[in-house]
Design a protein around this nucleic acid. Structure first.
Lengths: 247, 247
DNA sequence: GTCTACCACATTGGATACATTCTTGTCTTT
DNA sequence: AAAGACAAGAATGTATCCAATGTGGTAGAC
């Protein structure tokens, strides 16, 4: 009865390296997210686990974990009409962008409210950083020289600075889950957003002033206005160029 | 090459039922969440996948998926000091409750803002439902007869009604991910929360009036106030009875 | 010629096997 | 006696295997 193949029976599982130990899920998540954000996986496209696994050179297990993660964050959604779970890349629609921007605006508003209540010295340090970043944006908007990626990085750092200054782990995690999704819309409609950059720069100045003054209500309102206006600017562009992933 | 064991070769994988096909993950998620919310898995407790799998009568695969889900939602967190990912049940702390309530308040405020902008007829329908629910809460608060579970259900339905009325899929998903976490604090400190119920009832009335009037700012402010006050009430109780899962 | 039924295939969900890493306990040495 | 090192065990991460289900295509019948 008792088989003796306890220690020595090892032939079927020969593989290459496995990198580290717990690196697979992380890499899978980042790489698939990258593929989605850069549009290699188009909005509305049907995702096949095995294909992704092969492309990333790993088995389906970590890919599945990554997909569940991406589903929770909103990058992929389930096709609901069928009983079986078919995952598709989340479409980019005007409706969704409006909702997404509103959510980010409110989360950031909450963080900004807390940032405004920090002691004065910390606020001044934040303000200094923000002014520097916004100056960079302003010069780009004046010269029209920066590439879209630079603008996105500066803008992302600007907002991230406001949030990181005061957010606890829970808000930070939520923000990090939601905010990066705006990148999809950014990349797709970037060229048209650049033209409106000066508006955003002006709105940023109001944000900075409000933080310097330490007025929570004003900070929150300014942040929400920035996102609300951004949503409207984006909406116009989407109307022009059409949505992706729905038909 | 071609083996003929396509249909008939079934010996090594004999098991009981497997329920449906894609039911395991759902069940695992709900059950583990239940265990956490009800405190069977205490805050701070170290979670072992295999134990849970055995307890739920399934393999580690669906349990693992459920845990990743629960991690993203905040029910479990990673022990960070070690390199390996050790999952523990998220502790219940005053700090965390404060953050959680603020987030829910802001998300609900956003939804409420949209609800306030619905056409008048729909608003009136909502208002009617809300008044009925709040009347139920008021009578419980007066008679001190309801059990904690009833109060929680009524309160949850109240807030959920406001959100569902106008939230899109994204906001709805986020709300459904975040709001249920307040149940953990509710259950743990429920007995003391009941005493303050009349305050919450009064705040609800303001919410209802604001919706009836169709004033987005007022609705949002009223919702946030309800959650902010709730956070303070909870904070006092936590100070009294201590936190769970930290030492 | 078209519609329906059935079969083969593709894909996902779940289970298990295996390799790696972290922990813990004991033994030895200073 | 205390501290460190080594060994045994436990737990996680990943790969592969099996089952279940939906989908599409083909063939047959009306």
């Amino acid at each position: 009865m008792a088989n003796v193949t306890s220690k020595t029976g090892r032939k079927p599982h020969a593989k290459k390296a496995a990198a580290q130990h717990g690196a697979g899920l992380q890499t899978a998540f980042q790489q698939v997210r990258e593929l989605i954000v850069h549009g290699k996986l188009s909005p509305g496209m049907w995702i096949v686990e095995a294909d992704l696994a092969q492309r990333l050179g790993m088995s389906r297990t970590p890919v599945r974990g990554a997909l569940q993660w991406l589903q929770r964050e909103g990058y992929v959604i389930e096709q609901k009409n069928v009983s079986k779970s078919r995952m598709i890349v989340a479409p980019l629609t005007k409706e969704d962008s409006s909702e997404l921007y509103a959510i980010v605006g409110h989360l950031e508003g909450l963080a900004g409210r807390r940032t405004a209540q920090l002691p004065k010295e910390k606020r001044m340090e934040i303000v200094r950083q923000l002014r520097k970043l916004n100056t960079g944006l302003k010069s780009i908007s004046r010269d029209q020289t920066g590439r879209a990626g630079d603008i996105f990085d500066l803008d992302t750092t600007f907002h991230s600075t406001v949030v990181k200054a005061s957010a606890g782990p829970r808000l930070m995690a939520l923000y990090n889950a939601v905010k990066p999704q705006t990148e999809r819309y950014w990349r797709l409609y970037a060229s048209s957003i650049i033209n409106d950059l000066h508006n955003s720069v002006t709105e940023h100045e109001e944000i900075i002033d409000a933080i310097q003054e330490g007025d929570p209500d004003r900070v929150e309102a300014a942040l929400q206005l920035n996102w609300s206006n951004g949503s409207q600017r984006l909406g116009k562009v989407i109307d022009l160029f059409g949505e992706r992933g729905t038909w």
